[in-house]
Simulated assay, not measured.
Amino acid sequence: MTELEKMIAGHPYHINDPELVEIRFDTRDKTDAFNQLSARQAEQKSALIKDIFGQVGDNVHIEQGLRVDYGFNTKIGNNVFINYNFVVLDCTDFIIGNNVFIAPNVQVYTAIHPLEPRQRAQHIGQAKPITIEDDVWIGGGCIIMPGVTIGRGSTIGAGSVVTRSIAPNSVAVGNPCKVSRTLDHQD
């Protein structure tokens, strides 16, 4: 199994494997090009977004300040708006559903580093997938940690650190992020 295959499967892998380093450089070159475009260069921006990410639905808008590790592990649904300074460490699957709003300065980390210092010194990594289901709003400055699913119809309050999965139709806030209320169909 290659280091790339190990990474995608969620197994421990060598972060500085030459193939992985080259993929990250290639993705960073593309995100740098995206970030340099004028706001009016919508067609070029759209083309680069489709080249950076593994899947991009219809009516997807991403503001500049984008930072992405791999790109091909990220799949974006339809009608998605992502505001400024979005950081994606997508060492394994990162799924964004339909009708998702992501505010400025949101960071998404599928990457995990070992707690044991000797393993960290050997540049061993691991990853757990993240899913943001349909109709979710992520507030500004949120951090979403490895292995989390944010359920359909949920709202995550600004500045939250999401360390555990959030049930559908929830309003969740804080560090660590906790459900403060459940929405019903009238909300």
Rank of each mutant, 00 (worst) to 15 (best):
G125P: 14
W137C: 07
H61K: 10
V108G: 05
G97N: 09
I138M: 02
K6Y: 08
F53A: 02
N78M: 05
Q36N: 13
P176T: 02
S154R: 08
K50H: 10
D51A: 07
A47K: 15
T163L: 05
R181I: 01
E133N: 09
L20N: 13
G159Y: 04
Q186E: 13
C91H: 11
S180L: 10
F86C: 06
Q44P: 13
L89V: 13
I62G: 00
N85I: 03
T182M: 09
G65Q: 03
C91I: 02
P18N: 11
V108E: 07
I144P: 13
V148R: 10
A172C: 11
I130H: 11
T92P: 04
Y109F: 15
N78F: 03
L37M: 12
F86R: 01
L183W: 05
V171F: 08
P104C: 07
D93H: 12
T155R: 10
V88F: 12
V56G: 02
I62S: 01
I82N: 09
R152E: 14
T149D: 04
V21E: 14
E5W: 04
G57Y: 04
K128P: 03
F34C: 05
D69R: 05
I166R: 10
L20P: 11
K6D: 04
I95A: 01
I62R: 00
K128S: 06
A158M: 15
S165A: 07
F101M: 15
G77C: 03
D90I: 09
T163W: 10
I112E: 14
A42Y: 06
C177F: 10
E116V: 08
V173C: 08
V56E: 01
N85F: 01
S160D: 10
G140C: 04
N105H: 14
A33V: 08
L183T: 04
N98F: 01
